[in-house]
């Protein structure tokens, strides 16, 4: 399916979704409440079957945090970007997609560790790289400071 058809198909399944076209991929933006259901829809609809989550990125935007999911279908060879923005930065919460794509387990832990987005219902929400006990703050946040950071 090309991007046009993909857009039509997704809108026919759920007309309330917000789809915009990027230079490479279609971008599907959802609210945290709808994230899990939309993800299930993308994975389980047989015409879409986005079964391969090839990248999961956490971004710190100025007013909120955002998670970008790059999805691909191994069956139909089409790709899409799913985005979910948290309500605020201080208490960034998103539902997990670990039960849908197992690779999200580690990637979400990484995002929690570095960007500070907590994923609810995640089986093992701990820091993955940094020290669980004594590391303060989330390094990839834009306001993170550290005595050792070099700023130019």
């Amino acid at each position: 399916m090309n991007n046009e058809q993909l857009k039509e198909k997704i809108l026919s399944l759920d007309p309330s979704l917000n789809i915009s076209e990027g230079p490479q991929y279609l971008t599907l933006s959802v609210t945290p409440e709808k994230l899990h259901n939309t993800a299930l829809l993308l994975k389980n609809t047989s015409e879409l079957s986005f079964d391969y989550l090839f990248c999961l990125t956490g971004n710190d935007l100025a007013d909120a945090c955002e998670v970008v999911y790059h999805l691909e279908s191994t069956k139909h060879a089409h790709a899409i970007v799913l985005k979910a923005k948290t309500a605020n930065r201080e208490n960034a919460l998103l539902p997990t997609v670990t039960d849908i794509w197992a690779t999200a387990d580690f990637h979400e832990r990484e995002v929690y560790d570095l960007v500070g987005i907590t994923f609810t219902n995640h089986p093992d929400m701990r820091r993955i790289f940094l020290d669980e006990e004594d590391w303060v703050g989330y390094p990839l946040r834009k306001d993170y400071t550290d005595n050792n950071i070099v700023t130019r």
Binding site: C55, H70, A102, F106
Partner: peptide, 10 residues
């Protein structure tokens, strides 16, 4: 997106 990170998760 590093391949080994995902490979390790399995």
């Amino acid at each position: 997106r590093s391949p080994n990170f995902s490979n390790l998760s399995a």
